[in-house]
């Protein structure tokens, strides 16, 4: 990573707007995420999280606003921007008719990783996520936790500086969730990968995220460190703070300011 790219935010979102017909799903979003941090994007169902991730990953064009990933403008150069990130969607996007290795090989081809490097890179990510013995298993035969690990391993094959995780631990048992987080922490420590995640498991977010943004009805209502948000809400946990901040009563009581990096 060059000194120049280290100074740039991993993600810079400016005045992002997305409408579906008359409904504004994302309404003037501004976010800046530093390289190497774990950023949690929280919100109740239907708040606009998944739509935002789709825009950040080039699947949906925004109606207004600008997105820069490592300084690359998504609207101007989406192909180049796609080289900078990996993504794990909420639903499994592995091909269940293929083996783990075939899925990883396909990803390598789509990201134009030279053939000579593929075997090594696939071996590396399989080892990193303790999947070496599953190399030739059909994806359809894997448990939910293993599939999640394969998906994250796949998203890292092209060495992205940034990874989007949309509900990475959804539907996993506690043991699988713990293993997954251990892998993610290891990844961040070893590679300095920026992690952008959404999750409804706020205990996990409280433990692992550096910064958090809370979105409701398409607007960010609170942004800052986990501690600053808990302090602002005068609660003891992030979950209680989140419930307080997104409650109807709190919404009508005040127009909150963003707590920036407090």
């Amino acid at each position: 990573m060059s000194a120049h790219s280290r100074r740039l935010p991993a993600i810079a979102v400016e005045s992002l707007v997305k409408r579906y017909g008359a409904e504004t799903v994302v309404d003037g979003l501004n976010v800046s995420i530093a390289s190497g941090e774990t950023f949690a994007f929280l919100g109740p169902n239907g708040a606009g999280k998944t739509t935002t991730i789709k825009m950040l990953t080039t699947l949906l064009p925004p109606d207004e606003g600008r997105i820069l990933l490592n300084g690359v403008d998504l609207a101007k150069d989406p192909m180049n921007a796609r080289r900078h990130f990996g993504v794990v969607f909420q639903d499994c996007t592995l091909d269940k008719t293929m083996t783990v290795h075939e899925n990883l090989w396909m990803h390598c081809a789509l990201h134009r990783i030279p053939r000579a490097q593929r075997r090594l890179r696939i071996g590396d990510v399989l080892a990193l996520f303790d999947l070496a013995d599953r190399r030739d298993s059909m994806v359809s035969a894997l448990s939910g936790g293993l599939r999640r690990r394969v998906e994250i391993a796949r998203a890292l094959l092209h060495h992205p500086a940034l990874i989007f995780l949309d509900e990475p631990t959804l539907g996993l048992d506690p043991k699988s969730r713990r293993i997954l987080w251990a892998h993610l922490q290891h990844l961040q420590k070893e590679c300095g990968t920026t992690i952008f995640l959404t999750s409804h498991y706020l205990d996990e977010v409280e433990r692992f995220a550096h910064n958090v943004a809370v979105i409701q009805k398409g607007r960010i209502i609170m942004q800052g460190t986990v501690d600053s948000i808990i302090r602002y809400a005068e609660k003891t946990t992030l979950e209680d703070s989140f419930l307080f901040l997104t409650s109807e009563e709190t919404q009508t009581k005040e127009d909150r300011a963003v707590v920036a990096g407090a």
Binding site: F89, L94, D95, H107, L110, H111
Partner: peptide, 14 residues
């Protein structure tokens, strides 16, 4: 409906 298309559409390929 079940996802694999997203893997191809976020790749740097036309």
């Amino acid at each position: 409906q079940f996802g694999f298309i997203k893997e191809t559409l976020v790749a740097p390929v036309s």
